[in-house]
Simulated assay, not measured.
Amino acid sequence: MYSGLYSKNYLDPPKYEKALGSKMDSFRENFADRLRSENTILREFCAELLGTFFLLLIGTAANIQNTVAAGGNATSAHLAWGFGFAFAVYIAANVSGAHLNPAISFTQYILGNIPFPKVIIFSFAQLIGAFLGTAVTFVGHLDDINNHDGGVRSVIGENATAGWFATYPAAHMTGVGSFFDQVIGTAILSGCVVLITDKRHRIPQGVVPFLAGAIMTMIAMTYGANGGFAINPARDLGPRVFTLVVGYGWETFSAYNYYFWIPLVAPFIGAILGAWIYKILVGMHGLNEDLDITGGKPYPREDRGYKGSSVSSIRPMA
C-alpha cells in the first residue's frame, strides 16, 4: 500500500524542509560570495553600465511606441524618458553618483570632483550600457520594426526606423541650429542637476532622482522636437553603433551631412556651461553662512567646493 511521501521511510516534513533550506542558504551564500566585489572601480563601472542600460531600454522603447503602437504619443514618450531617467539614477546614485552621461562625467572632472581616469571608465561603461539597452529594445520590438519597414533598415525616408534609436535632426534644422539645440538642452540638464543637489535647498536624498527625471521630461518637452534631445554622447553613440551593426549601414553616421558629431560634441560644452552658470551666479555665493542641515554638519563644510560630489548623485554638488 502506498504510504505517501511522509511515511516513516522518509524524512518528516520539518527535518526535510530544514535540510533543504540549509542547502539553499549555503548555495546562495556561495553564489553571492563568488559574485560579490568590494572593488570600487568595478562597482562604479557596473552601476554606470546598468543605469545607462535601463535609461536606453525605456527611452528607445518609448520612441517606438510613440510611433507605431496604438495610443502612443509624444507626451507619453517624454514622460517615459523622464521616468526611465529617474529610475536609472536610483539604480546608480549610491554607487557611482549616477552620471549616466560622459558629458556629466567630464564636467565633474572639470569641477575637480573626480579624477580623469574615472571619466574614461564611466564613459566606457555608459557607452556599453547604451548599446545593450538599445539591443534589448530592438529585440523586444522587432515585430513592430519589421511591420513598419518591411525588414529594410533605413535611416532616411518614409519607413526609416533608425531615428527610433539614435537621434537625427528635423528636416528644417541647420547645422548651427542643431549644435545650439544640443548645447542649450545639455546646459539645462547639467545646471538643474547641480541645483537639485545643492544642500542649501534641503531636498531629501530620495527625492533627487525623481527630480532628475522631471528635468529630463522638461527638456524633452521643450528641446526634444528639433533633434531628439540626445544631450548625452553615450545615449546617442551607443544606439548609433548598434544600428550600424544590425544593418542600417554607414548612413547612420553620414546622414544629414554627418550630423552624428553634434550630439557627440555639443553636450560636453553644454554640460560645462550649465554647471558653471549655476555655480557662478548662485552656488558660489553665501558660503560663509551657517545653515543647519538636518542630519549633517553645519553648512558649509571645510571643502567649500563640495569635493567628491557627483552631478546626478544624491550628494551635494553646487
Rank of each mutant, 00 (worst) to 15 (best):
L111H: 11
S309D: 04
N66E: 14
W261K: 01
S96G: 03
P115V: 04
P115D: 10
P13F: 12
S22V: 01
I114N: 08
A130C: 04
L111I: 12
G4Q: 08
K199P: 15
F124C: 07
A98N: 06
S26T: 04
A230S: 14
G185S: 15
F131M: 08
Y306E: 07
Q65E: 10
A271P: 09
A125P: 06
A98E: 02
N113L: 11
N288K: 06
E48I: 10
D303K: 06
Q126M: 01
F54N: 07
V119H: 09
T222V: 09
A93D: 09
N63A: 12
Y299T: 00
S309L: 01
G296E: 09
I41H: 14
A74R: 05
N30R: 14
L244A: 05
G191L: 11
K18F: 15
N73R: 02
R36D: 11
R301Y: 00
V183Y: 14
G71N: 12
G133Y: 12
G4E: 11
I145Q: 05
L50K: 01
F165K: 00
Y168F: 15
K297E: 13
F27K: 12
D25W: 10
L57Y: 15
I277P: 07
M317S: 09
T294N: 04
M173W: 03
A271H: 06
I156Y: 06
R235T: 00
P204E: 13
F85E: 02
F27A: 13
P204C: 13
Y258S: 08
K307R: 01
R200D: 14
L237P: 04
N101Q: 07
I64K: 10
N226H: 08
L50S: 08
M216V: 14
I196D: 14
A171C: 06
S105M: 08
P169L: 13
S123K: 00
P117C: 10
F45R: 00
D25Y: 13
P300L: 01
T137R: 08
G274V: 08
P263C: 04
L79E: 01
K118T: 08
W164R: 00
S313E: 03
S154A: 14
H99C: 06
M24T: 15
L127T: 08
F260D: 02
V241H: 00
G296P: 01
G238Q: 01
D149Q: 02
R235M: 01
K307L: 02
N101A: 04
N113P: 12
I114G: 10
V119Q: 07
R28N: 14
K118I: 07
P267L: 04
A80L: 05
G175N: 13
K118S: 12
A125T: 03
L79F: 14
A212E: 14
Q108E: 12
W276Y: 14
N30G: 15
G71M: 11
P102C: 09
N30K: 15
I128W: 00
H148C: 04
Y109S: 04
A62V: 10
T167Q: 03
A125K: 00
I104C: 02
H148E: 03
D290H: 03
G175P: 07
G59T: 05
W261V: 12
S37E: 09
G305L: 02
Y90K: 05
W276N: 05
S105E: 09
N113D: 10
